[in-house]
Computed example of a mutant assay.
Amino acid sequence: MRTRLLAATLTALAAVSLAACSSSGSGSSSGSGSDKATSAAGSPTTSATPATASATAPSDAATTPAAPAPGSAAPTADGATGAPVPDAGASGAPAPAKPAPPADAGLPAKPGTDLTAKLVSALDAIDPAIVGGKPDQAVDRARNQCQSIYQSPKDKQKLADLANQRFTSADHPQGFGPDTAAKINEALLATLCPPPR
Score class of each variant (00 low, 15 high):
162 L>Y: 08
178 P>R: 03
154 K>A: 13
41 A>H: 09
98 K>R: 07
26 S>L: 12
105 A>C: 03
165 Q>F: 00
72 S>Q: 05
53 A>M: 10
134 K>C: 03
86 P>E: 08
85 V>D: 03
174 Q>C: 00
157 Q>V: 03
78 D>V: 04
113 T>F: 07
171 D>E: 11
182 A>Q: 09
38 T>R: 13
59 S>H: 10
77 A>G: 06
29 S>E: 11
141 R>Q: 09
149 I>S: 07
69 A>R: 12
33 G>T: 15
32 S>E: 15
139 V>H: 03
138 A>T: 05
85 V>A: 13
83 A>G: 02
74 A>S: 12
2 R>L: 08
56 T>W: 14
135 P>Q: 08
49 T>P: 01
33 G>V: 15
154 K>D: 14
160 A>R: 12
120 V>Q: 02
95 A>M: 01
190 A>W: 02
143 R>I: 04
38 T>M: 13
177 G>L: 02
96 P>L: 00
47 S>D: 13
145 Q>M: 15
116 T>G: 03
21 C>I: 12
51 A>D: 14
67 A>K: 03
74 A>W: 09
18 L>Y: 04
71 G>K: 09
97 A>Y: 02
10 L>H: 05
96 P>W: 01
61 A>E: 13
100 A>H: 02
118 K>C: 06
43 S>N: 15
104 D>G: 02
33 G>C: 10
177 G>F: 01
79 G>M: 05
99 P>S: 01
136 D>F: 06
136 D>S: 09
75 P>S: 05
154 K>G: 14
176 F>I: 00
23 S>L: 10
104 D>S: 01
76 T>A: 14
122 A>Y: 02
181 A>S: 04
138 A>N: 05
50 P>Y: 08
30 S>P: 15
170 A>P: 02
160 A>S: 11
62 A>N: 06
189 L>D: 06
47 S>Q: 15
71 G>F: 10
180 T>P: 05
38 T>Y: 13
10 L>Q: 12
84 P>G: 03
16 V>C: 03
42 G>R: 14
189 L>R: 11
187 A>R: 04
8 A>H: 02
109 A>Y: 04
180 T>A: 05
141 R>A: 09
169 S>P: 00
32 S>I: 14
61 A>W: 10
192 L>S: 05
153 P>C: 11
31 G>E: 13
7 A>G: 03
140 D>P: 01
8 A>L: 11
141 R>D: 08
172 H>Q: 06
79 G>C: 03
86 P>A: 11
147 Q>Y: 04
126 I>H: 02
188 L>V: 04
22 S>N: 13
130 I>W: 08
147 Q>I: 04
3 T>M: 06
87 D>E: 05
113 T>R: 06
46 T>V: 15
20 A>K: 10
121 S>F: 07
57 A>E: 11
1 M>T: 06
192 L>E: 07
197 R>I: 12
187 A>Y: 02
46 T>L: 15
32 S>M: 14
40 A>L: 10
46 T>N: 14
153 P>M: 12
23 S>M: 09
99 P>D: 02
53 A>K: 06
180 T>H: 00
44 P>T: 11
101 P>K: 01
135 P>H: 07
110 K>S: 14
20 A>H: 12
122 A>G: 04
107 L>H: 01
